[in-house]
């Protein structure tokens, strides 16, 4: 395999693995920016993956080629609704946000597998018939080097992921809504004094993170695994949290980190076919995202600071 061929193989695959991480990590950015820690992203992805596969299997004949999009929309809606558990517990009932997130993870997995067994009478669904396919972007694919690298084997969901990242950046940094969102995450009392409804902002942020987490799960299941079982989402949600932190709670940073982690995942899976790294044990690449995140937090790779009020419920009148 020549160096170019290798790149043409690795880069599209890295983007494929990064796509679900991008959606979910951006969801995490919304939630944490508003001051609500969301450890439950893994559970939300699991629910999204299940809903995506279920809708795809059951309604493929009704919607035809549009099935994948209907499935993703359904996963977003159910993901958003499911995240309300976390929102109600951690915002209104002042539960410990980490504990509530852990409960979301347990609940998401348990409910999804329970439903699979109830509906299909077995632990694993069938393989979907309509999956998200690659396509080539006209004209752009003809560009030398960049064409085969980026535009010949594109998933529409990957384009959507980039759009969501840029859109999230715009919303969080360029709109009044985004300013309020950041304000309730940094200093909720000040925001409250200025007439911002802290709890409402946090509810919205958590539901956005639920919807994006659900979307991430549905994308993962429909592009990579093509079915659903208890092991479909195994750590993707936690890796998205890592991407969010490594990206320093910034949408574009999260995008970059997700792409990098996607690359690490690709190399750990396909590493033994790739020259130069075939002798590197896969375990190094598998643990790379997590180790790097710890380094980033420790300040070895630029200091990553969480939003100030992150993790604390806002109680009116309490200093």
């Amino acid at each position: 395999m020549s160096f170019l061929e290798m790149l043409y193989f690795i880069i599209p695959s890295a983007i494929l693995y990064a796509t679900p991480l991008i959606f979910t990590a951006i969801g995490g950015v919304f939630s944490e920016r508003s001051g609500v820690v969301n450890i439950g992203l893994e559970g939300l992805m699991i629910v999204g993956a299940f809903v995506g596969i279920y809708v795809n299997l059951e309604y493929a004949s009704t919607f035809g080629a549009a099935t994948i999009w209907v499935a993703m929309l359904a996963a977003m809606i159910i993901g958003g609704i499911f995240s309300l558990f976390h929102a109600v517990a951690s915002i209104s009932f002042r539960a410990d946000q980490t504990v509530s997130g852990v409960a979301i993870n347990l609940l998401g997995l348990a409910v999804s597998v329970f439903m699979v067994k109830m509906i299909y009478d077995k632990g694993q669904t069938d393989t979907i018939t309509h999956s998200i396919d690659r396509f080539a972007i006209p004209y752009l694919e003809k560009i030398p080097f960049f064409g085969p690298l980026l535009f010949q084997n594109v998933y529409s969901t990957s384009i959507l992921a980039f759009a969501v990242a840029i859109g999230a950046w715009f919303i969080i940094y360029k709109t009044p809504f985004g300013l309020r969102l950041r304000a309730v995450g940094e200093h909720p009392m000040a925001a409250d004094t200025m007439g911002v409804n802290v709890n409402k902002m946090r509810y919205i942020a958590v539901v956005i993170s639920g919807a994006l987490g659900g979307l991430g799960g549905a994308v993962y299941a429909q592009t990579i695994t093509h079915d659903f079982s208890h092991a479909t989402i195994a750590g993707q949600g936690f890796m998205a949290i890592a991407a969010m932190i490594f990206g320093k709670w910034h949408p574009i940073g999260a995008l970059g980190a997700a792409l990098f982690f996607g690359l690490a995942q690709t190399l750990s899976i396909a590493g033994n076919q790739i020259p130069y790294i075939e002798n590197v044990p896969a375990v190094y690449l598998q643990i790379l995202p997590y180790v790097l995140t710890i380094f980033a937090l420790a300040g070895f790779i630029g200091k990553a600071n969480a939003p100030k009020a992150s993790g604390q419920p806002y109680i009116k009148g309490k200093r």
Binding site: A89, F93, S100, V102, A103, L107, A110, V111, F114
Partner: peptide
């Protein structure tokens, strides 16, 4: 898995003490 659902719910309720 029904039992895992119950355990997760119990965590929610205790956390929302």
């Amino acid at each position: 898995e029904i039992v895992s659902i119950i355990i997760a719910l119990i965590i929610f309720f205790v956390a929302s003490g």
